[in-house]
């Protein structure tokens, strides 16, 4: 009897010890798992989890702040003291922050930047992302490069040789921070660099490939002759535009090898932002001229390292990334063309 009791107690203790060893679970709350970029980003976050101390668990907000609010309410009931949130509504995260403050939970915001006022509500809030202006800046650099780099004398891509860049802009969701900033800044950068720019049209394609194709089809009869470059707020819209441009024979793969040889075959410059794998592939095939890579890989590394520091209760000063204002971890974009 005594032996059994001892055995029983040891098993209990062992299983308790087992519980103690359990990995820490960090909720990763994505705004919409249908979003291709977020799918890639999510995968990278998982791939860069080199830490035994925790693992991520994904939640899908299905592009609804209401659902995200519910998810947050649920995960706060668990023992998570660090959560990663990709906000649906960047204006609507302040209640989540208030809740987190109440429960002493750290939040790492990703992909969509909450307004500064909200980030200042509480000290355990972080944002890992890229400065949207930078993407536009880099996109402008690619365009400058395309036109030869000299504002006073544009190269052969200035089709009408008026020394003015005639462009079509495919804009993302109006009101969306990225869309507004990218649209505004790319032009601003070009102007700052001394180039003259004529915006033929700004079409709102809501970051959508299909919508971009549709808009492109409509605008070719109007601006098909005069446009010299298509500037898209993201790669999806750039790809949507390219698909139409192929139909309209702006691209002609004469030897049918699936690759556009820019030296010998007909092509048209389209630039995107995001650096999606498919976009990178299209660059290699000669269709997409260039893109700005939202360096998700580096972001994923930063997120993992930051999560590790927060979970382990280590000092943030050990962080290998620069933290601005104790809140922002800015990851640089990369130009690909």
């Amino acid at each position: 009897m005594k032996k059994f009791l001892i055995l029983f107690i040891s098993i209990m203790l062992l299983s308790l010890a087992g519980c103690g060893d359990k990995e820490y679970e960090i909720p990763l709350i994505i705004y919409d798992s249908e979003d291709l970029y977020m799918q890639d980003f999510e995968d990278l976050i998982y791939l860069n989890d080199d830490y035994a101390e925790f693992h991520f668990t994904s939640y899908d907000s299905k592009n609804s702040q209401i659902i995200q609010n519910e998810i947050v309410g649920d995960v706060f009931l668990n023992e998570s003291n660090v959560i990663v949130v990709n906000p649906v509504d960047r204006l609507g995260v302040y209640p989540i922050i208030a809740k987190a403050k109440e429960n002493d939970i750290s939040i790492i915001f990703i992909n969509r930047e909450p307004i500064k006022e909200d980030l200042l509500l509480y000290d355990k809030l972080y944002y890992v992302g890229a400065k949207p202006e930078q993407s536009a800046e880099y996109q402008a650099d690619i365009i400058i490069d395309l036109f030869g780099g000299n504002p006073d004398s544009l190269n052969e891509f200035d089709l009408n040789e008026d020394n003015i860049i005639q462009c079509v802009i495919l804009k993302g969701e109006p009101g969306h921070q990225d869309a507004e900033i990218r649209t505004e800044n790319v032009i601003e950068e070009l102007l700052t660099a001394g180039f003259e720019v004529e915006i033929l049209t700004v079409e709102e394609a809501y970051f959508s490939q299909d919508l971009a194709s549709q808009k492109m089809r409509d605008l070719i009869p109007l601006y098909g002759e005069s446009m010299e470059v298509v500037i898209a707020n993201n790669d999806a819209m750039a790809i949507g535009a390219i698909n139409v441009l192929i139909e309209e024979e702006y691209f002609i793969d004469e030897n049918l090898d699936g690759i556009i040889d820019r030296a010998t075959e007909t092509w048209f410059p389209v630039v995107g932002i995001d650096g999606l794998p498919i976009a990178v592939e299209l660059i290699e095939q000669g269709y997409l001229y260039g893109t700005v890579l939202n360096d998700s890989e580096t972001m994923a590394q930063a997120i993992n390292e930051l999560a590790f520091l927060l979970v382990s209760g280590l000092d943030i000063s050990d962080f290998s990334f620069v933290i601005e204002d104790n809140k922002y971890i800015w990851i640089d974009y990369k130009k690909i063309y």
Partner: peptide, 8 residues
Amino acid sequence: VNTIQGTR
């Protein structure tokens, strides 16, 4: 209690 998207 919920937020109304796009407003504060």
